[in-house]
Computed example of a mutant assay.
Amino acid sequence: MFWKTKVNNQTGLAAENQALAFLQKQGLRLRERNYACKAGELDLVMNDKDTLVFIEVRFRKSDNYGSAEESVTHRKQARLNRAAAHYMQTFRLTDKVPCRFDIITIHPDRNRDGNQVNWIRNAFGP
């Protein structure tokens, strides 16, 4: 059984919206947003042609406490793997489509107004 959660944090919601818009411009199609189960939550689930892509979105105002990339620890990766396995089993996709895990990091761009988006494809494996 699964349920959807509402993103309460306005900064997190804005980062997810920016990541979604960025990825859609790259040709990815949204399947699901904020998919949650007991194993964890998937920020974005998208299709990149025939590949199912599970995307973790990370925003950092500064790197004082580590970068956005570093915040996706092995423990977080394991939770994302379990949530992705749940998603694939729920929708009976396990043997039908290849998948990958991407990370979108968003940082304030000190040289311009707005944010800098970094897309890390195939960031880690199942």
Rank of each mutant, 00 (worst) to 15 (best):
F2I: 00
F2T: 00
F2C: 00
F2P: 01
V7W: 09
N8G: 11
N8Y: 12
N8P: 04
N8I: 09
N9H: 13
Q10A: 12
T11C: 05
T11N: 10
G12T: 04
A14P: 06
A15Q: 07
A15H: 07
E16N: 11
N17Q: 15
Q18H: 07
Q18W: 05
A21P: 01
A21Y: 10
F22Y: 14
F22G: 02
K25H: 12
Q26M: 05
L28R: 10
L28P: 02
R33D: 02
R33A: 02
Y35F: 03
A36K: 13
C37Q: 01
C37F: 03
G40W: 01
G40I: 01
G40M: 02
E41C: 11
L42W: 02
V45M: 03
V45G: 02
M46I: 06
D48K: 10
D50G: 03
L52N: 01
V53K: 12
V53C: 10
F54E: 00
F54K: 04
F54P: 01
E56G: 06
V57G: 03
S62F: 04
S62C: 13
N64C: 07
Y65H: 15
Y65I: 13
Y65G: 11
G66E: 11
S67P: 09
A68H: 12
A68L: 13
A68D: 04
A68S: 14
V72S: 07
V72D: 08
H74V: 12
H74A: 14
R75T: 14
Q77H: 09
A78T: 12
A78D: 11
R79Y: 01
R79E: 14
L80S: 02
N81W: 08
R82W: 07
A83E: 05
H86K: 10
H86Y: 14
H86N: 05
M88E: 06
M88G: 00
Q89R: 08
T90W: 03
F91M: 09
R92W: 07
R92Y: 11
L93S: 07
D95M: 03
K96C: 04
K96N: 08
K96S: 12
V97P: 04
C99W: 06
R100P: 04
R100K: 15
R100Q: 15
F101I: 09
F101W: 12
D102I: 13
I103G: 02
I103Q: 14
T105K: 11
I106W: 08
P108R: 12
P108K: 14
R110H: 06
R110D: 09
R112Y: 07
D113N: 12
G114H: 06
G114N: 13
N115K: 03
N118M: 10
W119K: 05
W119Y: 09
I120H: 13
R121N: 10
N122L: 10
A123N: 08
G125P: 05
P126E: 10
P126D: 10
P126M: 09
